[in-house]
């Protein structure tokens, strides 16, 4: 993944041992140091770009500033989703058991919401970063009759997918057949990106989820 990954131990030990390393110097070092997250910006650094908006709340998942690619091959920054509630789930496109159920459940939530659905977004993150290209996700979205405005079927790096799953409390692992075993979760983020509702299991709680969204 990273080729410039020299360990800093020798350097850091020497620096700390010399006690010359004050905090401002440490910050100067930080700027030299390239960090994978910096490519799409990281907390403090990137926050300035959003100077116009109020700072994110302490519970906002958008603080991760993960970046996805959706079924239309467009970049979707988490912060782009700010301002409207988001219904979230995780699937993979070649899954034909639980995943369609989850997606159909979210469609039912939309039906329950009626006109209010226009003010809601859906973020469906794939586990399968190897096979779920934007094209494959578009195909899946079509099959599910969910390839429409406000719906993002997205993929990203293995590491970002793992981060998102951790924040959602979703467990998954690739099984020997190439598919994924995963927990089935539908969650709701409020306009600030805080996880306000999470349900695990395939129990068709679309009415409950719709109520949560309506109450936001």
């Amino acid at each position: 993944m990273m080729k410039n990954g020299l360990r800093l131990n020798h350097l850091s030990r020497a620096l700390i041992a010399s006690f010359l390393l004050t905090a401002p110097m440490a910050l100067a070092h930080a700027q030299d140091h390239s960090h994978r997250h910096h490519q799409h910006g990281h907390h403090q650094h990137h926050g300035e770009a959003l100077a116009a908006a109020a700072p994110l709340t302490n519970e906002s998942l958008y603080q991760t500033e993960l970046s996805w690619v959706n079924q239309h091959n467009e970049t979707v920054e988490l912060t782009d989703l700010r301002g409207k509630p988001v219904i979230v789930t995780m699937i993979y496109a070649s899954c034909n058991t639980a995943c369609p159920v989850l997606v159909q459940d979210i469609r039912r939530v939309e039906q329950q919401l009626g006109d209010a659905a226009a003010n809601t977004q859906v973020l469906v993150v794939s586990f399968d970063h190897e096979n779920d290209t934007p094209e494959r996700l578009a195909e899946f979205a079509e099959q599910q009759r969910a390839n429409k405005d406000g719906w993002h079927f997205v993929t990203g790096s293995a590491s970002d997918i793992r981060t998102w799953a951790a924040l959602m409390g979703i467990r998954y692992r690739q099984n020997p057949n190439g598919g994924y075993d995963h927990s089935n979760v539908i969650g709701v983020l409020n306009a600030e990106g805080e996880l306000v509702y999470r349900h695990e299991g395939l129990s068709r709680l679309h009415e409950k989820v719709a109520q949560v969204v309506r109450d936001l």
């Binding site: 800093l8 440490a26 907390h43």
Partner: peptide, 17 residues
């Protein structure tokens, strides 16, 4: 050493999520 270089991971700045 890491948190000095990456202040966003200092305990008073790291978000509760």
């Amino acid at each position: 050493d890491f948190v000095r270089k990456h202040p966003e991971w200092q305990r008073d700045r790291t978000p509760r999520i």
